[in-house]
Amino acid sequence: MYKIIACDLDETLLDSNTHVPKRNREAIKKITQKGIKFVLATGRGYVSVAKTLKEIGLFDKPNQYVISFNGACITENKSNRIMYFQGLSFDKANELYQLGLNYDVCIHVYTKDMLYVYKPAPDEIDYLTGRHHFKIINEQNISFLKGQEIAKVLYENTDMNYLRKVAADLGKKTDDLDVSYSSNRYLEFNHSGVNKGAGLLRLAKNLGVKPTETMALGDNFNDLAMIKAAGLGVGMQNTNPRMIKQCDVITSANNNQGGVAEAIGKYVLGS
């Protein structure tokens, strides 16, 4: 029996309007009543998922958890109690920011409670609205963040081939980082060894749950580590085609149609 279900948000749990479909909400209610942990596993910061937690009835609840910043942080929902945090050093974050200025990308810098965005296009602002609390910046460096804890940095461009070229161009400069892609628009940089899979296994160990008793659901490459780490790794029907073969199963429903509920019904509730 699965005791922890870790689930990505955007393009997985949420529909295109950033809400949890009714079908998913009903399935989550059934499993939480059985004592199964439903854990949001997101690239976002933990403070930005309050709306989703409220929709699924887990906001500010004790003994319920969120894996955020792609695994850089694990929090208990009650009062956002931080159980684990492993971000980037200021020097590394600033290096990534400076490197990003050389490319045609929008740059995101995440602290624990704020997202700073450099050079966002109008469509990126539209995409972020409703998903994050963010501030637009124009600085040529991030010295104003020195002394703050930085979770991760990412580059945005809707041309994924361009982002792959950027990653290849950076080469050894990112060998000491965990690099992934998400939402078909982001190239993400985390501390080495920090990813959703490591976050899921860390939480499971903390709760005395075996890896085989975990299930993970996602749609893109920043979900792949947890899909591989979990006892059952589930991709949505809209999963990035490049990683479909690395998932254990693929749902027939996409994120708008309640693919998460489909997986829960089939593999947890037996319906």
Rank of each mutant, 00 (worst) to 15 (best):
Met83Phe: 09
Pro62Leu: 12
Leu115Trp: 11
Pro211Cys: 07
Asn138His: 14
Tyr46His: 14
Gly197Asn: 08
Met215Leu: 13
Phe90Tyr: 15
Thr18Val: 15
Ser48Glu: 15
Gln33Val: 05
Glu11Pro: 05
His19Ala: 10
Leu53Trp: 04
Gln257Ile: 07
Leu88Val: 05
Val49Glu: 03
Ser48Phe: 15
Leu101Gly: 05
Lys34Trp: 01
Leu269Gln: 10
Ala93Arg: 02
Asn77Pro: 07
Thr174Ala: 11
Thr174Trp: 09
Ala167Tyr: 04
Gly100Asn: 03
Thr158Tyr: 15
Lys152Ala: 03
Ala41Val: 05
Asn17Val: 04
Asp15Pro: 04
Asp223Tyr: 06
Tyr155Asp: 00
Glu149Ala: 13
Thr32Val: 13
Phe38Cys: 02
Ile107Asp: 01
Ala229Gly: 10
Asn222Ile: 12
Ser271Arg: 11
Leu99Cys: 05
Ala261Thr: 05
Glu262His: 08
Val66Asn: 04
Asp159Gln: 07
His133Ser: 14
Met226Asp: 00
Gly270Cys: 03
Val47Pro: 12
Thr212Phe: 07
Leu170Cys: 08
Asn94Thr: 00
Gly233Ser: 10
Ile142Cys: 07
Asn220Ala: 14
Asn254Gly: 15
Lys146Phe: 03
Phe189Arg: 00
Tyr181Asn: 09
Asn184Lys: 12
Ala216Leu: 02
Thr251Arg: 01
Tyr97Arg: 07
Pro120Phe: 01
Val194Ile: 15
Asn184Ser: 08
Asp248Leu: 09
Glu55Gly: 03
Ile4Cys: 00
Thr32Ile: 13
Thr174Met: 09
Arg164Ala: 05
Met83Ser: 09
Thr18Lys: 14
Thr212Trp: 12
Val39Asp: 08
Leu53Ser: 03
Lys152Val: 10
Tyr110Lys: 09
Gln246Gly: 11
Ile5Asp: 03
Asn240Ile: 11
Asp8Arg: 02
Ser271Pro: 03
Asp15Cys: 08
Thr18Leu: 13
Ala93Val: 00
Leu14Asn: 02
Tyr127Asp: 06
Asn80Lys: 12
Asp159Lys: 04
Gly43Lys: 05
Ile107Asn: 01
Asp126Phe: 14
Tyr2Phe: 14
Ala225Gly: 11
Tyr118Gln: 08
Lys22Ser: 14
Thr239Leu: 03
Arg185Asn: 11
Tyr110Ile: 14
Ser252Ile: 15
Leu40Trp: 01
Leu203Trp: 01
Asn141His: 11
Tyr181Ser: 03
Phe59Asp: 14
Lys34Gly: 02
Lys54Gly: 06
Cys247Val: 12
Tyr2Leu: 00
